[in-house]
Design a protein around this nucleic acid. Structure first.
Length: 730
DNA sequence: TATGATTCCATTTTT
DNA sequence: TGGAATCATA
């Protein structure tokens, strides 16, 4: 039982619903945590209280997050609250937690504890190999698509036998899936999906495993519950089945990963799954100004099928949101540059400014403009360090040392650098391995012993096997740093890069240097952690280390922005087709449009003080110049909170925002033909305006900014530059 | 085996 | 349009 408020954990700083969530005793609890509503505080305080007041032992509490970053931040904050006790908590991502538990108890499920984890690229390589083996045309059935299908099946907890559908694609996927599972077993490898899928099977079908694993915990907490997929839901449900102390936190309005298998129903239907569940809603926003929040509410309230809630704030109203029409994407980039310059002049650090876009491709124009102006920036979501070819190559060598069955890694480097093991030799070797259903390296050793290779091929293969043996020896006796250094020498990898002096290979050498550096650092910080542990830590952690220090602005997709906040946010490309994004054919599934709406909501709710939304009247898409229609989301913004700059495009067909009454239950209009885009309040040169004091005038010039300013030629007093919001159309 | 030509295609990506 | 990925050719 929980007692009176802890002397350590002060509840004074919490609002009533926050307090309710923190104090909730036992049994299921779902917390709908709106954007900026202090969600992390609630989770961490709740955990701290369970420990301090509920006397729950820290190692019997499991807190699941979706990213390593979130896990790290949570641990950090818990350390602040409960001190070193925090180190005993189970805090981690679904994948990391499942990997850890499967290594501990997977033997019960027939898993070796030294399994290798395959990332998506490894998985695709494996699928590709199987397609080749089955002589399936990769054009017709791309490995990527098949791998995607396999992942979806695992997400839904279906093995190859349970797969449904007998269209040709499904039949092929099914066949590949079955062999894939065999090969993965032989390689002693699990893919990301497996970590969850195997955990579900273990928990649901193996009583001993269930007791050992689910029995470890008295409380389970899950963050970002709206992002869980079906398999993850099953894991959570199984873990909580005994004690039912399950606390889930999330926001259905911020569910933007449906396309990746996340199921909003997990949080929306939580109280049906757990009928005795307590429900708490955190609706006070501490992040954004009143105007920004109103705009966000306006967008999200038009969504169907959401848990009813409405964010409010006690923050000041703040400045108006600025909507800017630009000529084209280059003009839009120029807008970014101008805005950043102006903010900088006003003393705003660049780190407080973020540029969002719907798709990565939009960053290029902006980057070019920023570079021309020498404005420092960083792009989130580019290629990640551990996904670079040279890094993956070196890691592939290391992975073979830990798990000689790791065929994907082996085939990756068997002839890299080139050591005269040619395609024909490799094909023959792989065929033998397929035949024997055994790992390639093992097959290779046997084949050499049996003299099944001859001449040059045999010689080169023997050399390779010897190389691996030597590296094994070093791995067994020396530290990670030294192993790394020896590895790039002995394999000839370094020599290969030094050979040609192209700028790319220079860069690669540099990256290798960094990699070795990180080896040494890791060794220093974790002296008694094994090579296997190291490899796991990096395949499960893809957070690219951000170079702190220099003050830069941030460019990223809206997806990448979830969970972050910035004083100033500019969202680019607010156009129909662009945002909401539309692929090849119109939204056949209304849910896709709904997700775009939530995405817009996420974008807006990232902004604390200043928000600019821009669109281009014309944009070059796939090399073709297209006329663009302003995004429906722009039309839905509350007019009084917005300043619109620039002339709207002559409507080809525009969108009328649905009124509140139209939203639910009747569906919002999808037909947006023939209705004029509201040109309300658009301020543009030549426009007649009125000012309370100066009277009638005509706009000469418009300058975006914070706030936007307009130069007006007044009949009475001549030319004046003033803040746009003091003007009204005449 | 390496380079250039060619072809294809085109969101979002927490692990 | 541009980039990646595969293919062709030396």
């Amino acid at each position: 039982m929980l007692g009176s408020p802890s002397p350590v954990i002060s509840l004074d700083s919490l609002n009533p619903p926050q307090r309710e969530a923190v104090l909730h005793d036992t049994g299921p609890l779902v917390v709908f945590a709106g954007a900026g509503s202090g969600k992390t505080r609630v989770i961490t305080f709740r955990i701290a209280r369970l420990i301090e007041e509920g006397h729950v032992r820290p190692y019997r509490i499991l807190a699941v997050t979706f990213t390593n970053k979130a896990a790290g931040e949570m641990k950090e904050r818990l350390r602040g609250l409960v001190g070193p006790l925090a180190d005993d908590l189970w805090v981690g991502t679904f994948h990391a937690i499942c990997a850890r538990l499967l290594r501990l108890h997977g033997a019960l499920l027939g898993l070796s504890s030294s399994f290798t984890i395959y990332d998506d690229a490894d998985q695709q390589a494996m699928v590709k190999r199987i397609l080749k083996e089955l002589e399936i045309d990769e054009k017709r059935y791309p490995p990527k698509a098949i791998a995607g299908r396999i992942n979806r099946e695992k997400q839904d907890v279906r093995g190859p036998r349970e797969m449904v559908g007998d269209d040709p694609a499904s039949r092929i996927a099914k066949e590949v899936y079955a062999i894939y599972e065999e090969r993965m077993r032989s390689a002693n490898a699990l893919d990301f999906g497996d970590l969850i899928y195997r955990m579900v099977l273990g928990l649901e079908e193996n009583e001993t495993f269930r007791e050992l694993v689910a029995g470890r915990f008295d409380h389970v907490l899950v963050d970002e519950f709206q992002d869980t997929n079906h398999a993850q839901f099953r894991v959570v449900r199984a873990l909580a089945a005994g004690h039912r102390n399950i606390c889930v936190v999330g926001d259905d309005d911020q569910s933007i990963y449906g396309w990746r298998g996340a199921d909003r129903r997990n949080i929306l239907d939580f109280r049906h799954t757990f009928p005795e569940a307590a429900v708490v809603k955190l609706e006070q926003n501490y992040r954004s100004t009143g105007r920004i929040l109103r705009a966000a509410n306006e967008i999200i309230s038009r969504a169907y099928d959401r848990e009813p809630k409405r964010l409010f704030t006690e923050n000041p109203e703040g400045q108006k949101i600025v909507v800017v029409a630009t000529q084209d994407e280059r003009d839009e980039a120029a807008l970014v540059v101008r805005s950043v310059h102006e903010l900088r002049r006003a003393g705003v650090p660049l780190s407080e400014i973020a540029i969002f876009y719907r798709v990565h491709a939009q960053s290029r124009v902006v980057e070019e403009a920023l570079r021309r102006e020498n404005l420092p920036y960083r792009v989130i979501g580019g290629q990640r360090f551990y996904e670079r070819t040279e890094v993956k190559d070196v890691l592939a060598y290391l992975r073979i040392l830990v798990n000689p069955g790791d065929d994907v890694s082996l085939l990756r480097i068997i002839n890299k650098p080139a050591r005269g093991i040619g395609k024909t030799t490799i094909d023959r070797l792989v065929a033998m391995a397929n035949e024997a259903n055994a790992p390639v390296l093992e097959t290779l050793s046997r084949a050499l012993d049996a003299n099944r290779f001859s001449g040059a091929a045999a010689k080169k293969l023997r050399e390779f096997v010897t190389l691996v043996d030597e590296l094994q020896e070093i791995a067994a006796t020396r530290g990670l740093g030294e192993l790394g250094r020896e590895l790039i020498e002995k394999t000839g990898y370094r020599a290969m890069l030094e050979q040609d002096d192209s700028p790319e290979s220079d860069a690669r050498l540099q990256v290798l240097g960094e990699l070795i550096g990180s080896f040494m650092l890791f060794e220093r910080d974790n002296p008694d952690v094994s090579l296997a542990d190291y490899l796991e830590s990096i395949t499960l952690d893809t957070t690219s280390e951000e170079d702190a220090g220099e003050d830069r602005l941030t460019l990223m997709t809206v997806h990448a922005a979830k969970g972050l906040e910035f004083k100033t946010v500019l969202v680019l490309g607010m156009e129909e087709e662009g945002f909401p994004y539309r692929g090849l054919n119109p939204w056949d599934d209304p849910e896709e449009l709904e997700e775009e709406r939530r995405l817009a909501y996420v974008a807006i709710t990232r902004a604390e003080e200043r928000l600019v939304l821009s669109y281009a009247r014309t944009r070059t898409v796939f090399g073709q110049m297209k006329l663009r229609i302003p995004s429906r989301f722009l039309a839905e913004l509350p007019p009084d909170d917005v300043i619109r700059l620039g002339e709207p495009q002559r409507p080809q067909g525009a969108y009328r925002p649905p009124t509140q009454a139209e939203v639910r239950p009747p569906p919002p209009p999808v037909d947006y033909d023939g209705v004029d885009y509201p040109a309300d309040g658009m301020i543009r040169p030549g426009m007649a305006v009125r000012h309370k004091v100066f009277g009638q005038g005509r706009v000469v010039d418009v300058r975006e900014g914070f706030p936007p300013k307009v130069t007006v030629e007044f009949r009475s007093v001549g030319r004046k530059t003033l803040v746009a919001s003091y003007l009204e159309p005449a």
